[in-house]
Nucleic acid binder design. Structure first.
Length: 569
DNA sequence: GCCGTTTTCGGCCCGACTGTTTTCAGTCG
């Protein structure tokens, strides 16, 4: 970050913090100084170097000294002191439309929101509407604001794009002008982040259909408006492209606009090698006769290939595999029987055991593993040994009352910096499922981190390594480890690698899923649900698994509870 | 905390809008 931005950011935050404390007038002073710094065209360091910064409008003696301190040390003691009472990323949070200092403080006090990812989490989970003084409309506005910020960063999370597209499609279908309407693009391929939304349609009255599209209530800007292609920006800054194609070309167009670009290039070369031509209107022979076009599956069939699921279309060997008939039969959401990573209000979750079970059952699951945080996270209510024992009794009692559903016992233990866990072995031995996760000491050396993870895999009690890379998309980079070495240990000791379904995590990602499978490692999906609504994340992890070429057999979750035992010692 | 002078202290923007609540609080411009 440029120093100017850092100085401005700190001054803005001071203004907000003082405002929250009810201090009069000072906030405006800090804000004015911040705005001055923000709009400078010269590096603030140069101004500080010869003292000119003290002459800037809005900068007096006190603020000039503070600016110098920031430039020299990178931070400001006065700012740190003010922040002690409200340790949140106030600057980032107040960038969200509809969130000011008061709302940020309220969300921190009521829901523990510290940063943008927390905000997105509670907004997606529907928790904001329940805060006194806020409501459903505020929650929706915050979600729009977050989308805007994410889109300003270029891409939005898959977990945001999906419902957005779904809603859009439902509204367009309701217009009655669309005979067919499908999502294409990276969303159809299940990429973890999405740029623009691509929609593909058949409409007899294309003009009317396009009219309905650009006339959608949330359209803020019409970028293009024609009978074949229209493009809009909806509230939140997300760009939506709609292409209306002839019936005879729909399949070819769906193929073409689903991509990826690399996959399409390879596929077109494949066609050219047969003296054919493939484009968005169809597959044509050398005489220009259409061989395929109305249905996407026919395009692949005519090319002599197995149908390649959209999730595999990244030019990563799928065309060669399809030629040989060796594409994997990818796991499907319907194959999933259980969730192996669930929290409750026994630790930092917000659903009771009973509520989480009820929600899981509505998602057609047959079992869930309750894996509340272990004691390291005592500040967020992590389980002590005693509390865990009480929970085991509660789960046993609950299971007595359940028919056709099983609650497995478990824990999400913390992997300490040396690879040991924060729960005694004698207790771990009693549990059905032990998830072990890194929650601190993210920045160890690659060698230390690798050793740390290998030691966990070797632990006879550990069934699953939770969110193995700890990355948070757009927010926290993954830890560094020699994953081939880790997977070797994982495979040897039958420790599963988690695919964490939280949209900001999707961890391990598709690339690592594939490498893990190649190394003979099993995977375990965990929604990491902290509220009942989080079970809806499950399909995101299934998509990630599919993008990693996973079959039903590669996932522990597809097994019945009686056959979950995978660990060997 | 800054600024402009009534030259060393008093003044510093506030109304529209939204959402939630029911008379107001918070955000935005």
């Amino acid at each position: 970050m440029m120093m100017n931005d850092l100085v401005a950011r700190i001054l803005f935050e001071i203004a907000d913090l003082l405002g929250l404390e009810g201090v009069a007038f000072k906030p405006q002073a800090y804000r004015r100084a911040a705005e001055t710094i923000e709009s400078l065209s010269e590096p603030i360091e140069e101004l500080v170097a010869d003292g000119r910064h003290a002459n800037l409008p809005g900068v007096g003696e006190a603020i000039a000294k503070k600016i110098a301190e920031i430039v020299e040390t990178g931070h400001l003691k006065y700012h740190d002191k003010l922040k002690a009472n409200l340790p949140i990323d106030l600057f980032a949070l107040t960038q969200v439309d509809g969130v000011g200092p008061k709302t940020a403080k309220l969300l921190y006090n009521e829901l523990g929101v510290c940063n943008l990812s927390d905000l997105e989490r509670v907004a997606l989970a529907g928790e904001i509407r329940n805060v006194k003084g806020l409501g459903a409309k505020t929650e929706a506005k915050i979600l729009r604001g977050l989308t805007e910020i994410r889109s300003a960063e270029g891409r939005m999370l898959l977990g945001r794009a999906q419902p957005l597209a779904q809603d859009l499609i439902e509204r367009l279908r309701a217009s009655g002008f669309f005979e067919r309407l499908e999502v294409a693009g990276s969303l159809r391929r299940g990429r973890e982040t999405i740029g623009d939304l691509d929609l593909l349609a058949i409409a007899e009255d294309a003009a009317a259909a396009a009219e309905a599209f650009v006339g959608l209530s949330d359209v803020e800007e019409v970028l293009a408006h024609g009978e074949k292609k229209s493009s809009v920006r909806v509230s939140g800054g997300v760009q939506i492209d709609l292409r209306i194609v002839p019936t005879d070309s729909f399949g070819a167009a769906l193929q073409y606009f689903t991509g990826s670009k690399d996959h399409n290039v390879s596929l077109r070369k494949w066609a050219v090698a047969r003296d054919w031509k493939l484009n968005e209107y169809g597959l044509f022979d050398s005489n220009g006769k259409q061989l395929a076009g109305p249905e996407e599956a026919e395009v692949y069939e005519c090319l002599g290939l197995q149908f390649i699921p959209p999730e595999l279309r990244e030019d990563r060997g799928e065309i060669e595999a399809a030629e040989k008939g060796r594409l994997p039969i990818l796991v499907e959401v319907a194959d999933i029987r259980g969730d192996l990573h669930v929290h409750t209000d026994w630790s930092d979750g917000r659903g009771s055991l009973e509520e989480m079970v009820a929600a899981a059952r509505t998602q057609e699951l047959q079992y869930i593993a309750i894996t509340d945080h272990a004691k390291f996270a005592e500040v967020i209510g992590g389980l002590t040994s005693d509390k865990l024992r009480r929970q085991l009794d509660a789960i046993a009692a609950l299971n007595e009352t359940l028919d056709g559903f099983r609650v497995l016992t478990g824990i999400e233990a913390n992997i300490q910096s040396d690879g040991s866990l924060d729960m005694p072995d004698e207790l771990l031995a009693k549990l059905d499922v032990v998830v072990a996760s890194v929650h601190a000491h993210f920045r160890q050396s690659k060698a230390d981190m690798t050793a740390r993870l290998i030691r966990v895999c070797e632990n006879e009690h550990v069934d699953i390594v939770g969110h193995p890379t700890t990355r948070k998309i757009g927010e926290r980079t993954p830890i560094e480890a020699d994953w081939d070495a880790v997977f070797e240990a994982t495979a040897k000791h039958h420790t599963a690698m988690e695919i964490n379904a939280n949209p900001i995590r999707l961890d391990v990602n598709a690339d690592l899923v594939r490498r893990a499978i190649d190394a003979g490692v099993k995977l375990a999906i965990g929604t990491d649900a902290h509220v009942p609504e989080h079970f809806s994340f499950m399909p995101l992890a299934v998509l990630t698994a599919r993008r990693g070429w996973a079959t039903k057999a590669d996932l522990l979750n597809t097994r019945p509870p009686s056959k979950l035992q995978y660990k060997t010692t």
